[in-house]
């Protein structure tokens, strides 16, 4: 095995056809390189007079950060990788040291496909290698994620969007992807709310025959997003509520009426009244807890007072 000290300027660092790593910045690697030096040589492919990186993108980046001008390298020719494609070599090398991030996994699969590997081979060999079930639909999902717009990749890498959300968004036109990525700079949504908001946006836009982002253009949504007193998470919840109100106008009005009529009863806050979440039945659940008999008597008395009032009947009517 020949290891040479390769000047970084002689390496085609712009060629990323074998890059698996998502983030090149690696402070721990920089520290290690500074303290104990580079233990493993990078692997380069010499092809057509150029040397491209197969393994070692982060090591070369760290060396540059430290102002080094050369790195220990193994330089191989195309025949040395046979029968594997150099990308497969890079992938297996990466997996030997660490599990891949979701985006790195998706990108690796996308590159394998671009390198000409048959989808059946990728499904059978590489999905299990990456810890994924060997199914064609899984590969399709991964490729969608890999081909999403950079803004969505940034959200996925930062844990702001789930892979499922990125996959759903990746099916949309590029401008919609960019718009959602920008939106996510201002709000935070839990995984469940991401799913719901994406569904609401789709339903509202399709129901109105409008473009996907149209429901975000309303005044109400604008006011929520521009409200400086709200945290990103509160804005996310506010956005969800606003979209839900538009999608379920009669249901949300019924809920508001119920709350209003509940308030009119003047019951203490310790007594909770709950209707069926969708008013499918007229039943109302009454709940309170009391630490002693005196409190119990008081709350029961309040309920009895409300039961004698005329307002109680209206609580069971959700009609407009």
């Amino acid at each position: 095995m020949n290891i040479t000290d390769m000047p970084i300027r002689d390496i085609d660092t712009a060629n990323e056809e074998c890059r698996i790593s998502g983030e090149l910045e690696a402070p721990a690697l920089v520290r290690s390189l500074r303290d104990i030096g580079q233990l493993n040589p990078v692997v380069l492919l010499e092809r057509g007079g150029r040397r491209i990186i197969v393994c070692g993108f982060r090591r070369i980046h760290a060396a540059r950060t430290l102002g080094r001008e050369s790195v220990p390298a193994r330089v191989l020719g195309p025949a040395d990788f046979s029968p594997l494609h150099p990308l497969e070599f890079a992938l297996r090398d990466n997996l030997a040291f660490r599990p891949l991030e979701p985006l790195e996994r998706a990108r690796a699969l996308d590159k394998l496909e671009e390198a000409g590997l048959l989808p059946e081979t990728i499904v059978r060999v590489y999905l299990p290698l990456l810890g994924l079930p060997p199914r064609a639909d899984i590969l399709e999902s991964q490729l969608l994620v890999a081909r999403a717009r950079p803004g969505l990749h940034h959200c996925l890498a930062g844990g702001i969007l789930t892979q499922q959300s990125v996959e759903a968004l990746a099916r949309m036109p590029p401008e919609s992807q960019d718009r959602f990525a920008l939106l996510m700079e201002r709000i935070r949504l839990s995984a469940s709310l991401q799913r719901q908001v994406l569904g609401l946006l789709r339903d509202l836009a399709a129901g109105d025959g409008a473009s996907w982002g149209a429901p975000l253009d309303g005044e109400e949504v604008g006011a929520i997003l521009d409200d400086p007193s709200l945290s990103p998470a509160a804005k996310g919840e506010g956005l969800h509520e606003a979209l839900y109100r538009r999608r379920h106008p009669r249901l949300t009005r019924a809920r508001a009426r119920f709350r209003e009529r509940e308030r009119a009863l003047g019951l203490p806050g310790a007594i909770r009244l709950a209707a069926h979440p969708y008013f499918e039945t007229a039943d109302i659940r009454v709940e309170f807890s009391a630490p002693d008999a005196a409190r119990f008597r008081f709350l029961a008395g309040e309920l009895e007072r409300a039961a004698r009032g005329a307002d109680l009947e209206t609580l069971f009517e959700v009609d407009e």
């Binding site: 339903d203 399709a206 999608r247 379920h248 106008p249 009669r250 249901l251 969708y278 499918e280």
Partner: peptide
Amino acid sequence: LPWGEFVPG
């Protein structure tokens, strides 16, 4: 059809 005000039932 899919865009009515639906709830789970």
